[in-house]
């Protein structure tokens, strides 16, 4: 098979440049295979993240020819002719080469008030398939963070990160809010601190999701409706004034006695 040029961004927080590696293509390769071949030969210090190499762990996200993709799920023979450009995810600070500092996402995860179910009956909870299916869709998320990478609210506006949880966490909040057992109320938090209102439904997140989760339609839009109803529906407003649920911190909400 023919040779292909891999144009890989190399560098760190202080800057960097593209380096070209010419490799002979082999049949049925994905981008990650080629990166591994470059590591094993020309550049053993080329930094990239990967774990399962089967599209299940979400570690190897990068931008291939400018688009966020999982390197393990992108076939070489489906890329257009010419050099293949590989750059790290743009939204997150560079650590080195293709590895970025994704700690923003882990910090957001710490802010999520946990599920707060009623005490479990001795033989377990009862839930029905149609009720768990909504949450199951969101729990397919492999945390590749490509939806965060592509979301223009934070991709182009670093400052917004302090006000905005991002699509990955909107599906997490949607999952919890739609959970059949949950008694925690996160609506004010989502509106006031997680920046749901910044999302203007361009669906970029849905387009890049490798798990084909309908992030915008099934999570963000219903979540917006729920949050807005709570805020502006006068009956709901009055109800909340009279019997306001107390918001629990993630830590408080999580402490449940072991069964």
């Amino acid at each position: 098979m023919s040779d292909v040029t891999m144009r890989v961004w190399r560098g760190d927080a202080n800057g960097g440049q593209f380096e070209d590696y010419t490799v002979t293509q082999q049949e049925g390769e994905v981008v990650l295979d080629v990166i591994h071949r470059i590591q094993a030969t020309d550049a053993p210090d080329l930094a990239c993240r990967w774990n399962c190499k089967a599209g299940k762990c979400g570690s190897c996200a990068a931008e291939i020819n400018g688009k966020p993709r999982l390197m393990c799920m992108t076939r070489m023979d489906q890329l257009p002719e010419g050099p293949v450009t590989i750059t790290p995810m743009k939204t997150f600070p560079i650590i080195r080469d293709l590895v970025t500092d994704v700690s923003f996402n882990y910090a957001q995860a710490e802010k999520v008030p946990a599920l707060l179910p009623p005490p479990m009956p001795a033989d377990g909870y009862r839930m029905f398939q149609q009720d768990v299916e909504r949450g199951q869709e969101f729990r397919k998320c492999i945390e590749c963070f490509m939806c965060q990478d592509v979301c223009h609210v934070i991709r182009d506006h670093e400052d917004n990160k302090q006000y905005y949880a991002g699509p990955r966490f909107f599906i997490r909040y949607a999952e919890l809010e739609m959970h059949p057992l949950d008694t925690n109320d996160r609506r004010d938090l989502i509106r006031e601190e997680m920046g749901l209102g910044y999302c203007n439904i361009t669906k970029c997140c849905t387009e890049v999701c490798p798990e084909h989760i309908k992030i915008t339609d099934n999570a963000i839009i219903p979540l917006k409706e729920r949050v807005v109803d709570a805020q502006y529906d006068p009956v709901a407003w009055l109800g909340r004034k009279i019997r306001r649920k107390t918001k629990r911190s993630a830590e408080e909400a999580a402490v449940q006695p072991a069964p």
């Binding site: 029905f128 949450g135 959970h179 449940q256």
Partner: peptide, 11 residues
């Protein structure tokens, strides 16, 4: 106990 912590198994 996984269900207390948020797991959603098939039913």
């Amino acid at each position: 106990e996984l269900e207390q912590w948020g797991a959603l198994f098939d039913r």
